Amino acid sequence: MQYDPIKRSLGRVFNATPGFRVLFYRLLNLLLLRSWYIRRELKKWASRQGRGAAILDAGSGFGQYTWSLSRLGAGYQILGVDVKEEQVADCNRFFDKLGKGDNVTFKIADLTRFNEPESYDLILSVDVMEHIEEDRKVFHNFFSSMAPGGMLLISTPSDKGGSDAHEHGEEGISGFIDEHVRDGYNMEDIHEKLEEAGFSDIDCRYSYGKPGHISWLLSMKFPITMLNKSRLFFVLLPFYYLAVWPLAALLNLMDVSMQHKEGTGLIVKAYRPMQK
């Protein structure tokens, strides 16, 4: 099943004007449960941080979370990095049009090589680490690039089915979302790797428990499956979401309010200790 082509198609539709793109970001924030978790943690961080901060969006993609970060504080300097040249150029154009070019910049970077010592108060990594084989190297780079006292915030699939992987063949992991090098993180595994990199106060929690999984099926998997079968479903998509959204929102609210013994996602926070 192909998720990324559908995402790109939707992105092209909503990229017609800056206003449409902001609308797309807002819709994603409403629909995607991981966005509920991430934005909650970002608001907590911002309430403690104060006015100024340097932020790295590590794997910025279409710029959804960079946009959310740019709205948290006028004094924040944000760098978004991604390996895809076209996305980096597109995001730079878009944020320039929004008048945020002085505070928000994007550049091409490979996270296995990216290292800017003690530069960032916050590093955000959303649905990125499951795509990178050399994750230990990236975690070490994150630690080196983080200012003392800074926070790393990660959202990634867990090994409880987060990638919806259903077969392992010669081409690797196959599932709803392609191009994953692992079918999800074991909680102990990612904790150990972050600790090895030097992080402390590591907090790993499951997301996408039972309510969140049902919401994901309703708001993401079912419509994406239909769009893969026929692009004519684009016409019906607004009516589908009008019917489904109230239930999906209730399920999302339940999920972020609960402590889950298991879940298909992980929300991870880790800190670089203050220098003695």
Rank of each mutant, 00 (worst) to 15 (best):
G19W: 07
G175C: 01
D102Q: 09
P238L: 11
L266E: 02
F62A: 14
R272D: 08
L247T: 12
S163R: 00
V104R: 08
K193P: 00
L122I: 09
V22W: 04
I6A: 10
R71K: 14
L194Y: 09
Y208I: 15
S68Y: 15
N252W: 07
N115C: 04
Y25E: 14
D4L: 14
H166S: 06
F233C: 10
P238N: 07
R40Q: 10
I154S: 02
D82F: 01
N141K: 03
I224L: 11
K261L: 00
L237A: 14
L153M: 13
G169Y: 00
D4W: 12
F14H: 10
E188K: 11
G59K: 09
A165M: 02
A109Y: 04
G11A: 15
W45Y: 13
T17Q: 07
S60M: 13
E171C: 00
G149P: 00
K43V: 02
E41I: 02
E179H: 11
S68P: 13
G73M: 12
K84V: 04
D102E: 12
S200L: 06
Q259G: 08
K193F: 03
V128Y: 03
V128I: 08
L30Y: 04
E192A: 11
G52A: 14
N115G: 00
L27Q: 04
D203Y: 06
V13F: 15
E188N: 07
W67L: 08
R39K: 12
